Computed example of a mutant assay.
Amino acid sequence: MNFYQILKSAHSGWRYIVFVLLVIAVIQALAGWFGKNPYTEGNRKLNVFTLVSAHIQLVFGLILYFLSPLTKMASSEAVGRYWKMEHISMMILAIILITVGNAKSKKVTDAITKHKMIAIFFGIALIIVVAAIFMMTRADASRTFFGVS
């Protein structure tokens, strides 16, 4: 197994960690926001773990971007366009939203506002991630929503 295959497997497996943490963080933030719950140390840690896991996934993805034969395909083909432009753009945007949401939540003191910032920014990031997954399944028929690539 070469470096590319190891990195591709790491990136494919790590996505589940990022996705699960993101879903849990959004659910907790919505519950805290609408339930008017205090912002706990557990909330903060979950948000930081989500942020860190997303950034680790970004590092894997950026390295793969330059090694993958998929990004060398013609942009005129749906698969090539998806992997060369759409996937990376949407994922970077999602990670930027996670980063900004986490930073904004740290700057406010009100617990409800902290939950609200996380719910909004992480929620939009989650929507972008899910949309990117659906776009992937449309561009590349060999891939499934939760299938390992």
Rank of each mutant, 00 (worst) to 15 (best):
G101K: 04
F146I: 14
R44K: 15
I98M: 11
G123R: 04
N2F: 05
L51C: 07
V18P: 05
F34H: 11
T109G: 10
S105W: 06
V100G: 09
A139K: 05
I133Y: 00
I24M: 08
R143C: 04
T71M: 04
N37L: 15
I6D: 06
T144K: 13
T50Q: 02
V26H: 03
D110E: 14
R15E: 04
L51M: 12
M135R: 09
M117N: 11
T99N: 10
S89P: 06
V20T: 14
L7M: 13
E41N: 12
S9R: 01
I24S: 04
N102S: 12
F66K: 09
R143I: 10
S76T: 14
I96T: 14
Y4V: 12
S12A: 08
F19T: 04
N2Q: 09
E77W: 00
L62V: 13
I88D: 00
G123H: 05
I24C: 07
K36A: 12
L51D: 04
A141N: 12
W33F: 15
L22G: 06
F146N: 08
N37I: 14
I88H: 01
G42E: 15
L64I: 09
T40M: 12
A131L: 12
A131V: 14
H55Y: 01
M136E: 05
A141G: 09
T144D: 11
V23D: 00
G123C: 10
K84A: 08
F66V: 13
Q28A: 07
H87V: 05
S53M: 05
A74F: 07
F145H: 09
L70I: 06
E41W: 07
P69A: 04
T71I: 07
A111Y: 05
P38F: 11
F19Q: 02
Y4Q: 14
F122I: 09
M91T: 05
H87C: 01
I24V: 15
I98Y: 05
K45I: 13
A29T: 13
T50D: 08
H115W: 11
R81M: 08
W33M: 13
M1L: 11
T50M: 03
G61D: 01
S9K: 05
I92G: 04
M1H: 10
I112R: 10
E77T: 15
W33Y: 15
A10T: 02
R138Y: 11
G80E: 07
K36Q: 12
I56E: 01
I92S: 03
K36L: 11
I96F: 12
M91D: 05
L93T: 15
F145M: 14
I112L: 10
R15P: 03
I24E: 03
R81K: 08
A132L: 03
G80A: 11
S89D: 12
D110R: 06
G101E: 11
M135D: 07
I6F: 08
A74Y: 03
T109M: 01
Q5G: 00
V108T: 14
K104G: 07
V23W: 06
I118K: 04
Y82I: 06
I56V: 14
I96R: 01
V100T: 13
A31L: 13
S68F: 01
R44T: 12
V108E: 10
N43R: 12
V108R: 02
I92R: 03
N2I: 09
A103V: 15
